[in-house]
C-alpha cells in the first residue's frame, strides 16, 4: 500500500524533474523517435535515392503497398507462419524439458540446489552467439554427434531408410533445437520461482486425503504453477518469434523466419518501407500475447 509522499526528497521540484526527465528524454529521443520513424517509414515509398524513401512529391503521401504485400505475398505469410510455428514449438519443448527440471530443482536437497541453479544460470552469462555456435559444431555432417545419431538411426530403421548422415544443419528442426537450447533457462527460472513458493503441506494434505503422487501433481502442483508456465512461455516465445541470429546461422534460407526477412529487406533489397511494414506487422503479432500476459498478471496480482 503506498501512502502519499508529499514531502519525499523525490517530490521536491528540481529533483523529480531531473530524475524523471533525464531517462525520459533519453528514451523518447533514442527509442520512441526511432520507433516512430519505423512506423512512418512503413507507409513511405521506396525510391532509388539516398536515403531510399520518399513521402509525397512524385509519390503518394501514404503508401499502403507494404502492408498489402505483407498480407498478399506468400513469402511474408510463410515467414510469419514459420516464425510462429518455430517459436511455439520451441516454447512447448522448453516447457516439456524445463518443467521436470524446475520441479527437480525444487525437490533436490537444499545443499545441491544452489549449485544446480548456478549451473542453469551459467549458460545465460556465456555469449549467446557462442551457444549457437556450439551446436553448429555438433550438427555438422562430420561431427561425432551427427555420426552417433546417424548410426542409431540406421540401426533402428529398415535398411531402405538408411542415410549417410542426418540432415540437421539449415533446417527448421535445427532452429527449434538451438532455440530450446538458448532459451531453456528463461523457462526454467520462472517455473522454479513459482514452484519454489508452493506450500508442500498442500501436497501432504492431498496425499492424506487419498491422492496418488501423480494425481497430486496434476491436481495440486500443476494448477498452482500456471503463472510460472505463462511467464516462462512468454519469455521464450517473444524473443524466439523475432529471432535473427539463430535462423541466420543454422536455419533454412529457403523458409526464413520473419526476423531474417526484415533484415534482408533492409540490408539486401534496401527497401526501407517494406522492412518497416513487416516490422510493424511483427510487433502487432507480438502485442497480442503480451497483452494477454499482462492481463493475466494483473488478474493474478489483484487476487493476491
Amino acid at each position: 500500500m503506498s501512502k502519499a509522499y508529499k514531502t519525499g526528497w523525490f517530490d521536491r521540484k528540481g529533483w523529480s524533474d531531473i530524475i524523471i526527465g533525464l531517462p525520459y528524454v533519453w528514451l523518447v529521443a533514442l527509442f520512441l523517435l526511432p520507433f516512430l520513424i519505423v512506423v512512418a517509414m512503413s507507409v513511405a515509398t521506396k525510391t532509388p535515392t539516398a536515403p531510399p524513401f520518399s513521402f509525397g512529391g512524385d509519390y503518394p503521401l501514404l503508401n499502403w503497398e507494404g502492408y498489402e504485400r505483407v498480407f498478399s505475398d506468400g513469402l511474408y505469410l510463410r515467414a510469419f507462419l514459420t516464425s510462429v510455428v518455430n517459436a511455439a514449438a520451441a516454447m512447448l519443448l522448453c516447457l516439456i524439458v524445463g518443467y521436470p527440471m524446475a520441479l527437480g530443482l525444487v525437490r533436490v536437497a537444499p545443499a545441491w540446489r544452489n549449485i544446480l541453479l548456478m549451473l542453469v544460470i551459467l549458460p545465460f552469462w556465456t555469449s549467446f552467439l557462442l551457444r549457437v555456435y556450439a551446436w553448429m559444431g555438433l550438427m555438422g555432417k562430420n561431427s561425432w554427434f551427427n555420426k552417433l545419431l546417424t548410426d542409431w538411426w540406421n540401426f533402428v530403421v529398415p535398411v531402405d531408410w538408411a542415410v549417410n548422415s542426418i540432415p540437421m544443419m539449415h533446417t527448421n528442426f535445427a532452429v527449434v533445437l538451438v532455440m530450446v537450447y538458448t532459451y531453456l533457462p528463461f523457462m526454467i527460472l520462472p517455473l522454479y520461482a513459482s514452484l519454489e513458493r508452493l506450500d508442500t503441506t498442500l501436497d501432504e494434505a492431498a496425499l492424506d486425503l487419498g491422492s496418488r503422487p501423480h494425481q497430486v501433481f496434476f491436481d495440486i502442483t500443476l494448477p498452482q504453477s500456471v503463472p510460472g508456465i505463462i511467464a516462462g512461455g512468454m519469455l521464450v516465445f517473444i524473443p524466439a518469434a523475432g529471432e535473427l541470429v539463430i535462423p541466420t546461422l543454422v536455419g533454412n534460407s529457403a523458409s526464413p523466419m520473419i526476423g531474417r526477412v526484415i533484415s534482408d529487406e533492409f540490408n539486401q533489397a534496401r527497401d526501407w518501407p517494406m522492412a518497416s511494414a513487416v516490422a510493424v506487422a511483427l510487433l502487432v503479432l507480438m502485442v497480442v500475447p503480451t497483452m494477454l500476459y499482462s492481463h493475466f498478471q494483473a488478474k493474478s496480482g489483484g487476487a493476491k
Binding site: I20, P23, Y24, L27, V28, L30, F31, L32, L33, P34, F35, I37, V38, M41, P51, I238, P239, A241, G242, E243, L244, G259, I262, S263, F266, W272, A275, S276, A279, L282, L283, M286, T290
Partner: peptide, 27 residues
C-alpha cells in the same frame, strides 16, 4: 508513456530495434 518506454525495449525484437536505430542515425 514512461512506463511503456521502459518495458517496450525488453520485448522489442532486436531486428526492429536495429533497423529503427540505424534509420534514426542515418536520418
Amino acid at each position: 508513456l514512461f512506463s511503456g518506454l521502459v518495458t517496450a525495449p525488453l520485448i522489442m525484437p532486436e531486428v526492429i530495434t536495429g533497423i529503427s536505430s540505424l534509420m534514426f542515425f542515418i536520418l
